[in-house]
Design a protein around this nucleic acid. Structure first.
Length: 230
DNA sequence: GTAGTGATTGCCT
DNA sequence: GGCAATCACTACG
């Protein structure tokens, strides 16, 4: 679809999230993103969608686990300091990508950790299988996007095309409210995964996920803290 | 089902 | 030079 069709599409069928949604504190954005829909339009026009079920907050500044700790700006983490709603995609472990969305606050961003696949699951499966050694291994729906690097592969999120893009205006990726997130009001707060820093920050409950949702990457066995959203 | 481990490279000190 | 906001594979129960 051309750009005229794209804007018509947004007006008629989507409730695309606007600047005001992202211009809030990092923790609030991480919680508010739960239940919202992430949409990605590929070069061939195929639109892939998934519902966000798990996020993590990286506060910047004082947060020892954040890449922007100490308000340190580098060429890599610069999108964390850009306007709320900016995509920050980075490369990690020599082979994977992680996808973040900047929020209000200097160097603050939300990491997307897991999605419930909603549309074009065949395409997600195809993209994921290309990354594997044995393409014959079967992929269950729940394994398509249950991890920060997996969802990047499934939605073809990479640095070249997605980093620094504005999710409020770019037509390659955006967020929607489909009105179905009232089913997701009970959320769990837990420590963030895969970080290694001073314990004070390692233990903070800055990871959020939808309670009892099968698409979450990792379920806490203990230390659960529930919250009800209004 | 879970535990242990190798893969692989750009970024930052 | 060290290491990373991870994943897939293997082995084992």
């Amino acid at each position: 679809m051309d750009s005229g069709d794209t804007s018509k599409y947004f007006q008629s069928t989507c409730k695309r999230l606007a600047e005001s949604f992202f211009n809030t504190s990092c923790e609030a954005l991480a919680k508010n993103l739960l239940g919202k829909v992430l949409a990605r339009r590929l070069n061939d026009g195929c639109i892939i969608k998934g519902r966000i079920v798990e996020t993590e907050s990286y506060l910047g500044g004082e947060d020892a686990a954040s890449q922007s700790y100490g308000n340190k700006v580098t060429p890599r983490n610069e999108p964390m300091f850009m306007s709320p709603g900016t995509a920050y995609v980075y490369f990690t472990y020599g082979m994977y990508h992680c996808f973040n969305i900047s929020s209000q606050g200097e160097g603050a961003a939300v990491l997307l950790r897991a999605l419930e696949p909603l549309e074009n699951l065949e395409r997600m499966t195809e993209l994921r299988k290309r990354y594997r050694k044995s393409p014959k291994t079967t992929l269950k729906t729940k394994d398509l996007c249950n991890g920060p690097a997996k969802l990047c592969i499934s939605l073809a999120i990479d640095i070249e095309t997605c980093n620094r893009q504005n999710l409020i205006s770019w037509d390659g990726m955006w967020l929607e409210d489909d009105g179905q997130d009232d089913l997701c009001k009970t959320i769990v707060a837990a420590p963030r995964i895969g970080i290694n820093c001073e314990k004070k920050w390692q233990n903070k409950l800055l990871r959020f996920y939808i309670h009892d949702n099968p698409y979450v990457s990792k379920i806490e066995k203990a230390k659960m803290e529930f919250m009800q959203l209004p």
